[in-house]
Design a protein around this nucleic acid. Structure first.
Lengths: 344, 344
DNA sequence: CCCGGTTGTCGAAGCGCTTCGACACTTGTT
DNA sequence: AACAAGTGTCGAAGCGCTTCGACAACCGGG
């Protein structure tokens, strides 16, 4: 009796209304809460809904209310982008969206501007989230012109009229240097993302390098930036070269997920113990750092939080509110076994 | 002039109709091709559509046609499931769906049966794809009762009335053993997925073990199955134990992505060269195998193809066709540097 | 030259929901 | 006692599209 009717769900709002002895509009108002309905009526309607197993038709709702309750999420699938991190973003976006009674439509980067325009103009989605934003991203003009709110995960060169959120990569680069400087290291190096990532002007890679450079200068250290292909051979070669060219090098910041392990092993292979001879700090997901050996001091990318916050921002905009144009999440460095005072 | 009107897209089908000098229904038929329209009229309508920048309203369309052109994809995010592979699936599903003019709605496993029911009953989606199917999956009864077609990626114990597709993991396990047997190995071992994966009765882990076992028997080899946590320490401990307990062991099949590297290194650490002393073959993504050292012989999970085929199956069902209930993709073993004739 | 059969187009009736104005009551105020 | 100000509910008008039946216009075959 209290079980939803089995079989086909052809139950519509008029059925619920009849069953509860009210008009369809009343049912609608119970569902949306947009008008006051007496406690008594609300109860009856809710009971009928449950009993009949009623589910509002999404299309009809979207048509009548011009709200689809769907968000678009465009995710990258390219070299130099860490897959697990992207996945974490996606999942946290979906989870956060559900908390606001929204669903998530998945778009691939290769759909590009047309894809965004398509889902926006057809009213398939109410708002958009875009990941992996380049410094000069071709999608920016489109997003600005669209009549639907959007949030970027990442920062382009010109963010006017756009809402952006990301880890503060500049600060992340700096904080790592400060950590090393605080341990007495004087000569450091950044092993960065693959050259193509810099070439693409992907914001975060450049920003880490900038933050690194600024902190190096500020603390009077010496240190250079070294892009590195995401392949073990490349990493090994780079480490060997660095050690050869810079005998005083004792601190390394790795911002290149796929090769963090390799870097540590290459150091050992070249006779340097970590952290006794060389300290290593990374910008990478926490779980990767934890499972490395030794466990790596790192600044983690708070994918969970970024995704969640991105959705909150979007909801704010959808509700007509004003939201901060830029949200930079402060980096947190978790010290682990891979960093130690500089050898003297 | 031929540029779409800038600014708000409030263009509706009646606007296009007026602009082209036809009735709205004619525009609709041009778009859907469900009735013959003269070449001349079609051209005029298409031109008007382009000129006005018309995009049909997704909700209105869904309401009138009871087709949303959206597919649901439920993906796992759990321990023991390889994230990059999941991502590949997702991307290939999205790409394939787009080829059929459909979009993809992302659901997380934790939404469970309610989530599936919600999107299906509200007509948000036309059909569903479910990944990471357990042997006895609680979602199966629901999927059977739903009035919308679905496809499972993975095989449950009882697949009656369901459409399933996956790599033939049984054959994959067997083919690896055959590869080793062909090279003269007599004593082999399977380093499998974490125990919890077997406990959950996730089909593919069990099937690999079965295929492995069957082939071992058939070829008169000796060999056992050893679940392994996805942590380096666990893998190292397991390798050490295996080598100690089974001195004659010369062939290892690894079906546990996160530890493949570790296994090879652990073998070396225990004084066994790969492939000179011990051959290693893996079931894992190709790129992981390629970048390992030595490059690993492996059976890759054809995520790309599985995702694409899953969508094709779904489209077939949506078009009212009958599709094969079970699709098992044959495994392909790519020999690489990690396997060699058994030492004598 | 009329008739059955195409072929191409139109008009109108929904699809299932939201929302706006109306309205009947109930309260509280003077 | 009369009225202004809420409350709670209803009816009807769309939202923008698809689809069905109708129907001209044209075709060749008797």
């Amino acid at each position: 009796m209290s079980r939803p009717t089995t079989g086909r769900s052809v139950v519509k709002i008029t059925d619920v209304a009849r069953h509860a002895g009210v008009s369809p509009s009343t049912v609608s108002y119970v569902l949306s809460g947009k008008r006051t309905i007496s406690e008594e009526t609300r109860r009856r309607v809710r009971d009928s809904i449950r009993e009949l197993g009623y589910r509002p038709h999404a299309g009809a709702r979207a048509l009548a209310s011009s709200r689809s309750n769907v968000l678009a999420l465009m995710i990258p699938l390219r070299s130099g982008i860490a897959v697990p991190v992207v996945m974490q973003f996606a999942m946290s976006v979906v989870t956060a969206a559900r908390r606001h009674d929204h669903d998530v439509l998945l778009l691939t980067q290769e759909e590009g501007e047309d894809g965004l325009r398509r889902v926006a103009d057809s009213a398939l989605v109410d708002a958009l989230i875009v990941m992996d934003v380049q410094m000069k991203d071709p999608r920016l003009p489109l997003l600005r012109s669209l009549d639907r709110p959007s949030v970027l995960i990442g920062f382009p060169a010109d963010a006017d009229d756009l809402t952006c959120i990301d880890l503060d990569f500049h600060a992340a680069g700096a904080v790592c240097v400060e950590h090393l400087a605080g341990l007495g290291h004087r000569e450091v190096a950044l092993i960065g993302s693959p050259p193509e990532v810099y070439a693409r002007q992907t914001g975060f890679a450049q920003r880490v390098a900038d933050g690194f450079g600024a902190a190096v200068r500020e603390h009077g250290l010496t240190g250079g930036v070294h892009p590195c292909e995401a392949a073990p051979e490349a990493a090994r070669a780079l480490v060997a070269r660095l050690l050869a060219e810079r005998p005083g090098l004792t601190g390394i910041l790795v911002h290149n997920e796929p090769v963090v392990d390799t870097v540590v092993r290459a150091l050992r292979a070249n006779g340097r113990a970590v952290p006794q001879d060389v300290s290593v700090v990374a910008i990478c997901p926490d779980d990767l750092a934890e499972h490395a050996e030794p466990a790596l001091s790192c600044v983690a990318i708070p994918a969970q939080e970024v995704g969640g916050r991105a959705v909150e921002l979007l909801m704010g905009k959808l509700d007509g509110g004003t939201v901060p144009a830029a949200t930079l999440l402060p980096p947190t460095l978790t010290p682990r076994a891979s960093t130690a005072p500089a050898p003297r």
